[in-house]
Design a binder for these strands. Structure first.
Lengths: 335, 335
DNA sequence: CTGTTAGCGCCTTCAT
DNA sequence: ATGAAGGCGCTAACAG
C-alpha cells in the first residue's frame, strides 16, 4: 500500500507549484494551455486523485449529504422511499448515503455520522432514545412524530385514508371487516415504546376504530408475500363470515390476492382485499390491488425540506420541525 | 447562516485547549472526568458537531465509500442490486453512496467524484467513453466487459443460463420460441456502442442463437409490467404458433403472466413463460414465474472485491480487473 | 500567467 | 492531565 499520491507529488513531477496543479485540475482559465497539459500529463503518469476530504474541507460551497437508513429492501415500499429520497436530494444538490437498518441503530448512526450531515430513518423507540442514540447528529424521524430538539419528523396520515376507505367499502356493501396485521409491528409500536410490551399496530387501531362493531377478526403475519398469503388464509378459515380484508401492507396484500386466486376465492365478490402503500406492483396481480396509497413523494420532499432548514442553521440543534404527508385511495379491482 | 461552530469555539467556551476538546469528544482516558463533563456541556450548549471532512482528512483509518449509480428504481432487479451492494459494502466496512442515473452520466460521476472512492454503474457506451467521462475516478462497470485501465468490470453470464433453459424447454416439448425484447435496450446495446446504430439486446442474440430455426417471432416493449403485458399479447397475436416465450426481464414477464391470466391463456400448457432476473416477486403471481436467476449477490461481492483491490493500491490506475457472476434457473410453474 | 502565504477543522505527536 | 506545535491535502487570497 504505497503512500497516496498528493498534489505535492504532482507539482514536483511537473515542476510547478501546487497552486498551478490546482488550476489545471479545476480547469480554470488563468493558466497557460501548455502548462496545463504538462500538469495533466503528470497527473496521469502518477495516477493522482485529489482527496475528497481535503477538497471539501477547504471549498466554500460545501457538499451536503443525507444519510438514509433503509429499513428493508425486501419490501418495495421502502425501496420507493429510497427512490423518492434520491430524487428529492438530487433536486436540491444533496448526496444520498444509504445504510441498512440493523438491530444496533446506534452503530449505524455512528457510521453515518462521519459521512452524512443529516440522517433520516424509521425508528421504533421513543424520541428520547433516538436523541440519545443520535449523539447530536440531526435526525429526521420518518412516519412518526417527535417532540425533542434535534429530532425532527415527517408523519404520514394513514388514518384518514383508512377512514375514507372503510366508508366507501360500507357504501359498496361491506359488513364484516377483517384485517391481517404485522407481527413485527407488534413490537415496534409497543405501548409507549416500552420494550417487552406488545400491542397492535397503529394501522390496526385506526381500522378497528373505523369499523367499530363490524370487526370480524384479525390474524397476524410477517411482512412478506407468503406470510400475507398464509395469514389471509387463516383469517378466512377462522372467520368465514368476513367479506372485506385490510392487509397491513401491499406486499402482504399481494400474497392475499394470490391465495384467493389459487384457492378459488372470488375477489372482490366473495371477499374484498385492500392493501396499504400504493405500490405499482399492485398492477401486476389479477385482480389488480386496491390500496391506500401513501404519498411517498411528499414524505421525501418534506424530509429534504427539513434537511435544508437544518443545513441553513449550520446544523445547530433546532427546535423540532414537523411535517405531514397524506394518503389517497387507489381504487383498482380487488375491492 | 451563522458561522459553523468549530472545536475552537468549544475550547474557548469551556476554557480549555482544542486538544482537550478532542479528548473529551473521543472519550479517551487521559482526561479528568470533571473537565470532560465541562467540555461536553460546552459542546451541548453550542451545538457543536465535528466536521466530517476535517476528521476524515486527518484520521489514520480512512472511511471508504462506494458510489453506486442506480439505473432505475422502478425495476426491483436494480433494487436488489442496491440491496446486495449495501450488504457487501457493510461487510467490508465501506459506505454506500447512491446516485440516480440520468441522461448525463458525466454530471452524475462529477457529483460522486467528491464523495466516493470508487464508482459502480451500468453504462451503455464504450469503455473509452466511460474512461473519458470518469476522469480518473476508478470505475467498475456492471454487466459488461471492459479493457481499459481504470475501468474494471463485473460481467454476468446470462448466455449459459439461456442455453440451459432452452435445452430443458425443448426436452419439455417446446418447439416454437418467441421473445419479448426491451425497447430501450435497442439503443443501449447498439452495435459496438455506435450512437444512432440500433440493434437487438445481447439477451436476444444469445436466445436466437440457442433456438436456431425454431424462432417464432420477437416483439418489443418498454421495461415495465404493462408494456410486458402488451408486447406479450402482440406476440401471441402475430405469431399464434408460439408455444414458449422468453421475456426480457422478470418485470415484463410479470406483465405477460397477468396478460395470459386475464385473457384466459393457459400457462404453461398453451404457452410457457420464462423471465430473466430471478426476482422474489415471481412467487407472487399465479402461476409462479420460472426465471433465469442472475447471481446478484456475486455481482455485488465481486464489485466490492475490486473496490478493495483498488483501495489497497491507493486508487492508482490499475490494469483492468474482470470478474464474472453466474446465473441459474429457477424452475417454478410458468414453464 | 505563476508562485507564495494562509488557512480550512481536526488529530497526533511531543512537551509540560 | 493538559497545552503547544505541527501537519493532513487542498484551495483562496494575495503577490509578482
Amino acid at each position: 500500500m504505497a503512500k497516496r499520491v498528493t498534489i505535492h507529488d504532482v507539482a514536483a513531477e511537473a515542476g510547478v507549484s501546487r497552486q498551478t496543479v490546482t488550476r489545471a485540475m479545476n480547469d480554470r482559465d488563468d493558466i497557460k494551455e501548455a502548462t496545463r497539459v504538462r500538469v495533466l500529463e503528470a497527473v496521469e503518469r502518477l495516477g493522482y486523485r485529489p482527496s475528497r476530504f481535503a477538497r471539501n474541507l477547504v471549498t466554500r460551497r460545501k457538499q451536503h449529504a443525507l444519510g438514509l437508513v433503509v429499513a428493508s429492501f425486501d419490501n418495495p415500499y421502502y425501496t420507493s422511499i429510497a427512490a423518492e429520497m434520491l430524487t428529492a436530494a438530487a433536486e436540491r444538490g444533496w448526496q444520498l448515503m444509504m445504510a441498512a437498518a440493523q438491530d444496533d441503530t446506534e452503530a449505524v448512526l455512528g457510521m453515518l455520522a462521519s459521512q452524512a450531515d443529516v440522517v433520516a430513518l424509521h425508528f421504533g423507540g421513543t424520541g428520547a432514545e433516538l436523541d440519545e442514540i443520535a449523539g447530536g447528529l440531526p435526525v429526521v424521524r420518518l412516519e412518526a412524530e417527535s417532540l425533542l430538539p434535534g429530532v425532527h419528523s415527517v408523519a404520514l396520515d394513514i388514518e384518514s385514508g383508512i377512514n375514507a376507505v372503510v366508508a366507501e367499502l360500507r357504501a359498496r356493501g361491506a359488513r364484516r371487516f377483517g384485517m391481517v396485521d404485522s407481527a413485527s409491528s407488534l413490537q415496534a409500536h409497543g405501548a409507549h415504546g416500552v420494550p417487552g410490551v406488545y400491542g397492535p399496530s397503529p394501522k390496526r387501531r385506526w381500522y378497528e376504530r373505523a369499523v367499530g362493531d363490524q370487526l370480524a377478526g384479525v390474524t397476524i403475519g410477517d411482512e412478506s408475500i407468503p406470510e400475507g398469503s398464509r395469514a389471509f388464509g387463516e383469517l378466512l378459515e377462522r372467520h368465514p363470515d368476513v367479506d372485506t380484508v385490510l392487509m397491513f401492507n401491499d406486499l402482504m396484500a399481494l400474497g392475499a390476492v394470490q391465495h384467493a386466486q389459487s384457492h378459488g376465492v372470488s375477489v372482490p365478490d366473495r371477499v374484498r382485499i385492500v392493501g396499504i402503500d400504493g405500490l405499482a406492483l399492485g398492477e401486476a396481480v389479477h385482480p389488480r390491488l386496491t390500496s391506500i396509497a401513501l404519498d411517498v413523494r411528499a414524505l421525501a420532499s418534506h424530509t429534504m425540506d427539513i434537511a435544508e432548514l437544518v443545513a441553513k442553521a449550520d446544523f445547530a440543534r433546532l427546535d423540532p420541525i414537523h411535517r405531514r404527508a397524506g394518503s389517497s385511495i387507489l381504487w383498482r379491482e380487488s375491492a
